[in-house]
Amino acid sequence: MGKKKRGHPDVEDILARPWCYYCERDFEDLKLLISHQKAKHFKCERCGKRLNTAGGLSVHMNQVHKETLEQVENALPNRQGLDIEIFGMEGIPEDIIQQHNQRIIQNFYTAQAERHAATGNPPAGQGPAKKIKIETPEEIKKRLAEHRARVAAQKAGGGAPLAPAPTEGQPPQSVSPFPPPQAGYPYPPPGAPAVPGVPVAGVPSYTPPQAYPPTYPPGAVPPPGGYGGLPARPPGGTVPASNLPSRPPYGGASYPAAPGYPGASTVDELVASASRPADDIDNIIRMAERGEKPAVKPEEAAPADKKGKKEKNARMVYGDTEVSPEEKMVLLPRYAFVA
């Protein structure tokens, strides 16, 4: 009982995480989110300056580089617009928030079901020991209707019930304030209650309806590579690659506009397809979620033999590799010691 949340946070915890409007990633805290936005979405590709908002970047591009910012970099296809001013969690339209929460909830229960299918363990805190039945009015009405029909049938036929009453298999409802989605959710039909939390024989393995990215525990780095079954991404073509500052290359830096995106109808698919191999900045941010802010990295460990090429222009203020400055100073009349 004690280690309830180990590894699998509650849906409430996940919903409480700040997330990025542009790419739907979620973060440990707001500071990291803002740092992510500055690094991924509001960074000037010409000079690397990190601005606070898309508007700020637009003004910067305009004034400093005399260019027009067309869209927000690294954003999901339908979130590239400059018309919405986003800063951290501020400015996200209400309907997008709703959509996000729906997606999180759905992903959560999918992941939970997957875990259940894989391990056979009931989800944390929802073991068979405490089944609390909470039925929606619709369900009660439905059950009532079925009961009436059965009674009527019994009266009419005077024999055995026509259909087995589904009372035994009634799916217990989650105690969470965010119950699994009911409508349009592609679980097996009622009667084969494959609802997470109830071990049922005869449901061999649960197949997730779509290529959802699993919900990662905080701090985990998503595995490299995309998720199976996705259409190949067209190469990003809006920005001439040669103008990019030296960043690690990755596929699909920019997306075509949403309508032209083949087969991506839900936010989930877009998000899933956006889970390209995590690049440096995001890795740093992910790692930093465990502690300090990503801030400044020492210009990293360059093995001594690599540097010949890189530093053709370096000028050393003191260049003698054999004799130290002190040895030279001692030779000056000013500091010489005459015994």
């Binding site: 020492p298 210009e299 001594a304 530093e311 222009n313 370096a314 000028r315 050393m316």
Partner: peptide
């Protein structure tokens, strides 16, 4: 090992780094 205590030299001096 890592680099530090360097400064970008002005363009008119040929650019590159001044290494201290």
């Amino acid at each position: 090992a890592f680099k530090c205590h360097r400064q970008a030299a002005p363009e008119e001096e040929g650019g590159g780094d001044v290494v201290y």
